[in-house]
Amino acid sequence: MMHKMILLLMLLAFQNINADGQVYYTKNGNVSFFSKTVLENIDAENNQVISVLNTETGALQFSLLNNAFHFPKAKMESDFNEDYMESDKYPRSSFKGTITNLSDVNFNKDGSYPVKVNGDLTVHGVTKNISAPGTIVIKDGNVSATSSFKVLVSDYKIKIPSIVSNKIGESIEVKVACDYQKK
């Protein structure tokens, strides 16, 4: 009897481990953005993005430090942090949402699955609900995700002085790419 109890407890414990195994994360995900302007294209990259994906619930979140964006030019980087993002005041940008068509993804089968993501994007202290298309790729049991969407600078109360407004496009193309590991 005792043995059976222990076995049962062990089985239960195992189940818990399995449930935990549905969480994937990365701390070095990539977010980049691109803005086409008359003078010069602005292209910046952040490779220090924390992202957590729960394959059971579809919950998906991203978090990054604005000052970790790296620009081709130092002046762009300081303008971005000091004037536009006010990184001292608003150090982080984040997204918290869910994959709305989770049942279309088979995490146990290799493939490339188009997904739809909906959630709250917080940038420069302003939170807005957004929807974005993405792709989840399963290859040899590894999970990775990509997405590309457009963000309007004015939606997030980012003020760009008119003298440089022709240097920065109103609409910014944001790209996300994460290779996850199992927690």
Partner: peptide, 18 residues
């Protein structure tokens, strides 16, 4: 040093200093 971002407290994932 860019700073610290917390992980997800719901799943017990501590953040990193970058």
């Amino acid at each position: 040093c860019s700073g610290y971002i917390g992980g997800d407290p719901d799943i017990d994932l501590p953040g990193d200093v970058f």
